[in-house]
Simulated scan of single mutants.
Amino acid sequence: MFDDLPPDLDRLHTLRVWHTMWLQRIDAKIAALARRQTEEERGHRNRPAPPEWIIELGIGERRPPLQIHTGDCHMAGKRHRPVDRDEARRLLATGHKACGHCRPDSLLGITDLSSNPAPTAATARRSNTHIAWLIIHIRGRYTPAADVEAGTGQPQKLFTTTRSTWSSTCT
């Protein structure tokens, strides 16, 4: 049998004391981590719910309201206060700006006051076509005379499916 322990009694007692101290340290660390974990769980359970609506406040003595956000919007600044649904609707109706990220005006049913209307499908198609046209014409990759390939009578391909051609067109 493999025995790597010392043969004398003094050194065995020393090892026993040493390992007892280590077990106490390990037990203390386990207890501390268990306490911390239960405190975190208690904190998560007892955390108040975020407000439904908040208003971002300006700088200065009066701190005027700047923008209305939903309660969980991460775009809201550090200076804000909670407001109820009626006050948020009133502030939007009086001309205060709605956050363009969380869109509280849409959630509150005040779509006609939106400063950033959602694009329609037709607008998006028109926008994409316009962007492609600008890329080709400004970069000089396309000329009206090159619409039809020489002798074939077929329109030229504006975009190819290869990644290198697309990236060279856009650069």
Rank of each mutant, 00 (worst) to 15 (best):
W133V: 08
P82V: 00
K78G: 13
R85D: 03
K78M: 14
E52W: 04
S115F: 13
Q154A: 05
M75H: 14
P51T: 07
R81Q: 04
S114C: 07
A132W: 02
L33E: 11
A34S: 08
A132C: 11
P104M: 11
D105I: 02
A145D: 11
V17F: 10
Y142I: 04
T129I: 06
L134E: 13
D147R: 05
R63W: 05
M21N: 15
G153K: 12
T111Y: 08
R81M: 03
L113Q: 07
A34F: 04
I26V: 07
D147Q: 13
L12R: 15
A122R: 08
H137M: 14
R16W: 10
A124C: 09
R47D: 02
H96N: 03
G140V: 10
L9Y: 09
A150T: 10
K29N: 07
C170A: 09
L92A: 01
P48I: 08
T94G: 05
P7G: 12
T38P: 00
E52G: 06
Q37G: 06
P119I: 12
L9T: 10
P104I: 06
N116E: 08
I68P: 00
C99S: 00
I54H: 00
G58Y: 05
I26K: 06
S115V: 08
D112V: 06
D112M: 03
V148P: 01
P7I: 13
H137A: 06
R103S: 01
L92Q: 01
P65M: 12
H44E: 08
A146I: 09
M1D: 09
H13S: 14
A124P: 02
Q24V: 06
N116I: 07
D3G: 04
F159P: 01
R103P: 01
T152I: 07
D3E: 14
G58Q: 10
S115W: 14
L66R: 05
F2T: 15
D105F: 00
E52P: 04
W53Y: 10
D8K: 13
T94K: 15
K29W: 06
P51H: 07
P51V: 01
R139H: 08
R36G: 13
V17L: 15
L15A: 10
G60I: 14
P119D: 14
T169I: 13
D112E: 09
T20M: 02
H80L: 02
T162W: 11
V17Q: 12
M1I: 12
Y142H: 10
R163F: 01
C102G: 00
H80V: 01
R126C: 03
A32E: 04
T165A: 11
W166N: 14
L12H: 11
K97F: 01
V17E: 12
R139N: 08
S127T: 10
E40Q: 11
E41H: 10
R63Q: 15
A150W: 13
D3V: 11
P104H: 06
R36H: 14
I26S: 05
R11Y: 13
D27M: 07
E41Q: 06
D27C: 11
R126I: 01
R103E: 02
D3I: 14
N46W: 03
H80W: 02
P155Y: 02
R16A: 15
